[in-house]
């Protein structure tokens, strides 16, 4: 009796050990390259950390940032990008998905693929071509607007248009995944729901509001969260198209992190920016989950 209990225990213990061994590679890489840098990022944000210095300065980096006009401008730009890009991405994706989801499999794949192209291509390729499209002298955009009598614009060089031009590129690279997800979840809505509503002479607006929208809620939540996070982190488009200019009009927090750390060499200040960004994103994600996720089952 006792020996059988011991045998069972030993068996359970061995089973646990195997599980931990299976987890070890993923866990090891995760702890070393994700969890530890995260904690280290918070730690070094309290230091004046440059190539030659490493001095504890408490909250000085944070204090400095909240008085720094460039940082405040970057924060404002980042928020602007999120406020404009997220609703456009969501409504554009729903519109495209609604239009294509009942088409033949072939057409659906074709359109999904086309709208996913900018997301799957290297951001470097995207910016190379947009830089040429936006070019003030021989860009094709000015050529086209010229037909409507508009004066040529330095799209990326003027404070008025630079940020919007960046946002447009960001939007084209962001709609691919939402369209795929919306097409998938629209396909899961039973056709009988919509047919029943049509028999009852519901308008298409009513069908959308009362049936389709509520059924899309779990997908909406996920897409809003990931689009928000991605928009907060936009970096490559800005670094490659404007380097934050003109006069920091297109600088974002993420670009600021890069500039502080890798061009000016102040890692402590850059980490503090990163921490602030992470906190802002964290708070907004929680709000989105609370507000939108109340009737979502996971």
């Amino acid at each position: 009796m006792l020996s059988s209990i011991i045998r069972v225990k030993r068996y359970v213990w061995r089973d646990w050990l195997m599980s931990y061994l299976f987890l070890l590679p993923a866990m090891g890489f995760f702890l070393l390259f994700v969890a530890y840098p995260m904690l280290k990022g918070v730690y070094i944000s309290f230091f004046n950390y440059t190539l030659s210095q490493f001095d504890f300065v408490g909250l000085a980096n944070y204090k400095h940032l909240f008085q720094d006009e460039t940082f405040i401008k970057s924060m404002r730009n980042t928020v602007m990008i999120v406020i404009i890009a997220v609703p456009v991405v969501i409504s554009f994706s729903i519109f495209v998905a609604m239009t294509i989801y009942r088409k033949s499999e072939w057409l659906r794949s074709l359109f999904r693929g086309i709208f996913y192209l900018p997301a799957v291509s290297s951001v470097v390729s995207i910016t190379v071509v947009w830089a040429s499209i936006y070019h003030p002298n021989y860009g094709i955009l000015n050529y086209i607007t010229g037909f409507f009598g508009a004066e040529p614009i330095a799209w990326l060089g003027e404070p008025r248009t630079a940020l919007l031009s960046i946002i447009l590129v960001l939007i084209t690279t962001s709609v691919g995944q939402p369209i795929i997800l919306y097409v998938a979840s629209l396909g899961n809505i039973p056709a009988s729901y919509i047919e029943a509503a049509q028999i009852d002479r519901a308008s298409s607006g009513q069908i959308f509001r009362k049936i389709i929208w509520p059924m899309l809620m779990p997908t909406n939540l996920y897409i809003i969260v990931i689009t928000t996070i991605n928009s907060f982190q936009v970096f490559a488009i800005i670094q490659l198209l404007t380097s934050g200019g003109p006069m920091y009009e297109t600088s974002t927090v993420m670009y600021g992190v890069y500039e502080q750390a890798f061009m000016l060499g102040s890692f402590g200040l850059a980490s503090a920016m990163g921490v602030i960004l992470a906190i802002v994103i964290g708070i907004i994600s929680i709000i989105q989950f609370k507000y939108l996720g109340s009737d979502v089952e996971y």
Binding site: F30, A35, M38, G41, Y49, S271
Partner: peptide
């Protein structure tokens, strides 16, 4: 732990990752 880390912005760890 894995899921929570996934929700955090990846770019934020790049500076400490680089110094490491």
């Amino acid at each position: 732990l894995f899921v929570a880390a996934m929700a955090l912005p990846k770019q934020v760890i790049l500076v400490p990752l680089f110094t490491m």
